[in-house]
Amino acid sequence: MTQQVSRPMGEPVPAPTAAPLGFEAGMRSRAERSSGLEQDAVESEPTAGSKPPQDRQRRRKPLLVRIAVTALLVVFGVVFTYPFIWLVSASFKPRGEVFDNQLIPNTFTLENYVTVWQEAPLALWLWNTLLVTVLAAVTVTISSAMVAWGFSYFQFRGRNALFGFVLATMMLPGAVTMIPTFLIWNGLGATGTLYPLWAGNLFGSAFYIFLLRQFFLGMPRDIFEAARIDGANNWTIFTRIALPLMKPALVVTLLFEAQAAWTDLMRGLIYLRDSDTFTVPRGLKALVDQFGFGGEWHWEILVTASVITTVPMIILFFIGQRSFVEGIATTGSKG
């Protein structure tokens, strides 16, 4: 059955390497719908060669303008990267030199990393955060994709009204539901555990439901009808056909939520008490309280812990750079 199902969709399925292109195609069709033009909403390297000559004409600017643009870009580029370089550099400096604002440490030391590792259960914190991040990202992607599919493939009475509810929940400030949500987890005896940090994601998230629905709506319906005639049931159509076609959008959801989960401070503050259960952001805040405000002023420890908290996100970005950029551009194009 699987064989039969996969055949009719053989043609429109993008090859794995062309996945980003599939993504772009979806976005381009949206851009076309909204502006009625062939202009790309996002930069698309693959089509660079086939760009009409008007683009090249537009790029031929006076030398002075080009120099000014490049110079400004370089200046801003330095402004944007320097704080992080400063942070990394400071993490290799001994305590007395953290604030010396030197790019290259006068005294290079790895001691801060050793100290942080000894002072705080960092390995445990990293493991906790990794667990929360993976669980949060995977559950929200699966559940949101299911719900988005339910809203885009099926036709039933009250669908639009119900979807309106989904959108309305996005407008609600988190503060309103924060306390009762805490009481729910508290009632379940889950405070002090990591569950409250991710388990809510089992039920989907309005933002991702909206994002994924947009993509499902952009897919040709014929494929699904063909699969249905071949005897595929709803679940098979969803998992075997819709999800594989949605891979780029699913990656965006995974990455966005991974970032949100990794950097989440508020839930850690609300739910986690023991140092052993801390996530990295919660742990970093504890270190700030202990080594900064405690009066000891061990800035080198805070600097180093900040680097350790941040580096996984930088890695995540470089893994999914394209998806991040395209996902964000899509988010805005609904405005």
Partner: peptide
């Protein structure tokens, strides 16, 4: 320009103090 957006807000808070 986008990279700093990846920095966890807690780390941004520390960086602010520094």
């Amino acid at each position: 320009f986008f990279l700093p957006k990846m920095t966890p807000p807690v780390a941004v808070g520390v960086l602010f103090l520094l």
